[in-house]
């Protein structure tokens, strides 16, 4: 495999100073928040009722984790910020989520490939954080780890159905892999080899390929996002920004 060409943050871009533990908690909170928002867009549009229910349940799981982590971030930061302060009142440059999760849903194949890549990563994250000295974080990670195992079962089994289903589904899945691959270095970098070998194992069963394309884009963890995040936040934050300071 050729060496990666990683496009990360531009020269001169300031990195916001932040307590590293707070940064870690917010990063994972934002991953789950943005992904929950994306999956929420599928509700009532899914290919069948059972799939609609499954995607909705996964969305709810991610939202639950985001809320728990935002609340904990507020405690870690110690300035009285609430879950909605973090979700609704931060700007696109303050969000620390992976670039992968803010990518549009596309078709069902793109949603599944995105979910699969993320689930492989997320299980590794929770396994690690379940051992954290931060007891609250460890508790969230332990519970979330069980949910992530279920999400992985869902996304990996759909990778098989799409990759090894019909010619059309295989093509769509391959297109999705080609489209999303450049956002995966942010996921594989913290877990060199492990993340990639798990993905390879599932791909081997489906006949899907990973193009030998060296290009990677990163920067999510530094608040340097793709253009999609702005639109996502505009929709998510609109009510709170239109009616500031009110109770719902």
């Amino acid at each position: 495999m050729s060496e990666q060409i990683v496009s990360s943050t531009p020269q001169g871009m300031p990195v916001v100073e932040m307590d590293s533990h707070l940064r870690e908690v917010l990063s994972h909170a934002d991953d789950n928040m943005v992904l929950a928002q994306r999956l929420g867009e599928w509700i009532s549009y899914a290919p069948d009722l059972e799939i609609d229910i499954a995607l909705g349940n996964i969305a709810l799981d991610h939202l639950g984790v985001a809320r728990a982590l935002y609340t904990h971030a507020g405690e870690v930061e110690g300035e009285g910020r609430s879950e909605d302060d973090f979700a609704m009142r931060r700007t696109e440059r303050e969000f620390l989520n992976l670039l992968l999760v803010e990518q549009p849903n596309g078709d069902f194949a793109q949603t599944i490939v995105r979910q699969f890549f993320f689930d492989v990563y997320q299980r590794l994250v929770w396994a690690e954080l379940a051992e954290s000295d931060d007891e609250t974080l460890a508790g969230v990670a332990a519970k979330a780890g069980k949910e992530a195992a279920y999400h992985y079962e869902f996304s990996s089994s759909w990778m098989l159905r799409l990759g090894d289903g019909t010619e059309e589904s295989h093509t769509r899945a391959q297109d999705a892999v080609d489209t999303l691959w450049r956002f995966t270095s942010e996921l594989s970098e913290p877990y060199p080899e492990v993340w990639r070998s798990e993905v390879d194992a599932v791909f081997a069963e489906t006949g899907l390929n990973i193009a030998d394309d060296p290009y990677q884009r990163s920067g999510g963890r530094e608040g340097f996002h793709t253009e999609h995040l702005g639109f996502l936040l505009a929709e998510m934050q609109w009510m709170d920004r239109s009616y500031p300071g009110m109770e719902w």
Binding site: E50, I53, S157, R161
Partner: peptide, 20 residues
């Protein structure tokens, strides 16, 4: 009851639909 293409899917769906 529910609809699913295979057993693995049926189990996943059953969990989602009936044990929420």
């Amino acid at each position: 009851s529910l609809h699913a293409p295979d057993a693995r899917s049926a189990l996943q769906n059953a969990r989602d639909v009936y044990t929420r």
